[in-house]
Write a protein that binds this DNA or RNA. Structure first.
Lengths: 351, 351
DNA sequence: ATGAAAGCGCTAACAG
DNA sequence: CTGTTAGCGCTTTCAT
């Protein structure tokens, strides 16, 4: 039993156990790790002592000795967003499956805090580091490049190339194309594109949108709307507000939104404008967060497979820890057809 | 610069720095920690060496030496649910504010895994442990009691009393009463109660419901519906299904749901049954997860203030780590009146 | 102001 | 099969 002296906790160590049953610490270590022969008799004695003292081996001390760590660090913008939460769920599943533990730090959407988080995790001697949606924009030149030299480094949805790092990326270009194609095939010609500011993810999608619409002779600058901060708890309401102004003017028959929050905002705007979804107007979101099938009509969207995104990242770190090479893996983005898309009202034949 | 030999990472230690500039490790330690005088000249030399070698102090080694830890462990059922994610957001904010780091482990709603997670965290020498919504039902008799002896232990929404632990609880009894009172004041008499299985949280709420309805002479066993697993990604659809069967028979004018997922399911069921919310029927949820204001009509619900729940728990561990006593704190549950509740259609005068 | 040395809890040779 | 010992990276007396 641990003794509590003046409020301080003092737990049994390997020495306590050894002394308790008159063997050496080496022997105790051996029965704990089952890696060298120990006579049945002493093994039992030692185990009894372990039980009695509630001895728990100190992993930190072991790792110090072994010169390797079994914890993985994760830097995430925050958990307020289901997207990140699900990614972490995936990381945790893979990581704990391989006997690693997960050290988590939130960057609060602040580049400075992101760096501080990464540094903190490194100092805590993580065996590898995963950074989700890194804020590379205002990034100190080779902050991560240095880091990659000392620790396996993986980015999830990091758009800037960092030397020495591995990447897990959702196939957003392909995904955007699929979504838009879906709308086109339904006969839609006036497709609005709703994006947010300050993320490479939006830029990638806009590029695809422009190319595709251009190719179809359908590009109309007025149809591209930037609603500002696209990833906060106000995104739904903000989008609703902005679209309620734009809908009457642009009269789209379909709306593509860069994430599901915006798409739900779009649903609200249509509802307020007395446009039935999907009868009068179709809406496609992106990400497939849980919210997408909680709303009504259920949202048609592109599944980023966040759990797999996280899971793959975890596998990549572990691979690198074991001496593997850097890799870049893409997770397929697939269309989830639900209730918010349908045939265009007055389908225009596609030439 | 760290050397990479046959794919293995080998980082600079305090010894490397000391050797590099011909001082003792003690001196290096002093300039790193700024806790003892060092001459300006050597300080500069040492700092230069630190920069050059990209030396990062090893927190694990320091903590081993100092015999104290600066990491907090958190056991959570999972992150698939926004409730838990927001609680962790709160914990992380408080914890990192106090220079602690967060070690996270998911219990996957499995009591055995929950114990494994807790053990794992303890072995990693956390300074304190927070368990969110512990699955105390099938709990090995004094698993946590033992644990509380060796490490500060905090439960968030833990209903079984464990000796030696601190508690942070949402005031669910009061919250349930507030929600029901709200409905009563709106003139509702036929109030349905929707709960899930296997959680003390449901039992607490049902108790309040029964008392209150009994007191009003309104209790009707038929109005209490248990929809089974109440906290999965299927909860919304399951609730919709079950209620679509019960609504026509019971004809409630209001529905109280034990969490927001169920409440959204109830909204769907009403919609399918052509009951306008809130004109024909009122719905109150519980928790106030983000979803609640993303749906339309926006959900009236009881705010559990998850962020504060987590924040308070973190403060409690830290308090205990510093030698404080065990405490039990309640976080107020407040009514958030939005769009899903309104005057009863044919208000019956309350006697 | 600086260095030498002990030791945190643990594991892995190396002897016996 | 078991014990002795060195040392992981670090901090902190205790000397100088």
């Amino acid at each position: 039993m641990a003794e509590k002296e003046n409020g301080a906790y003092r737990n049994a160590t390997i020495v306590d156990v050894a002394r308790k049953c008159g063997v050496s610490v080496a022997t105790v270590s051996r029965v704990v790790n089952r890696n060298y022969p120990v006579s049945e008799k002493t093994r039992l004695r030692v185990q009894a002592a372990i039980e009695e003292l509630h001895y728990v081996p100190n992993v930190q001390a072991r790792e110090l000795n072994l010169r390797h760590s079994t914890t993985i660090g994760v830097v995430v913008p925050g958990l307020y967003n289901m997207f990140f939460a699900e990614v972490i769920d995936g990381i945790e599943a893979a990581v704990s499956n391989d006997k690693y533990s997960l050290l988590l730090s939130c960057a609060r959407n602040d580049p400075a805090q992101e760096q501080a988080s990464a540094r903190e995790l490194i100092a805590r001697n993580v065996a590898g580091l995963i950074v989700i949606s890194p804020n590379t924009e205002m990034l100190e030149e080779d902050f991560y490049k240095q880091m990659a030299v000392r620790t396996p480094l993986i980015f999830i949805n990091g758009y800037r190339e960092i030397e020495g790092a591995s990447y897990v990326m959702g196939a957003e270009e392909a995904g955007t194309r699929i979504a838009l194609q879906h709308l086109l095939e339904l006969g839609h010609r006036r497709i609005m594109f709703v994006r947010g500011s300050h993320s490479d993810s939006y830029a990638v999608k806009e590029k695809v949108y422009r190319e595709l619409m251009q190719a179809e002779g359908l590009l109309d600058e007025q149809m591209i709307v930037d609603m500002g901060d696209g990833n906060t708890s106000d995104t739904v309401d903000d989008t609703e507000w902005i679209l309620s102004l734009r809908l009457p003017k642009q009269k789209p028959t379909a709306i593509f939104c860069c994430n599901d929050l915006m798409a739900v905002g779009a649903q609200h705007a249509c509802q307020k404008a007395n446009l039935a979804v999907p009868e009068d107007i179709s809406i496609v979101g992106y990400d497939n967060i849980a919210l997408a099938h909680f709303v009504s009509p259920k949202l048609t969207t592109i599944d980023q497979q966040m759990f797999r995104l996280g899971h793959a990242a975890a596998e990549l770190v572990i691979e690198k820890i074991r001496g593997g090479r850097n890799r870049r893996v893409e997770i397929e983005n697939v269309l989830v057809e639900r209730e918010s898309t349908g045939q265009a009202r007055c389908p225009v034949k596609r030439e």
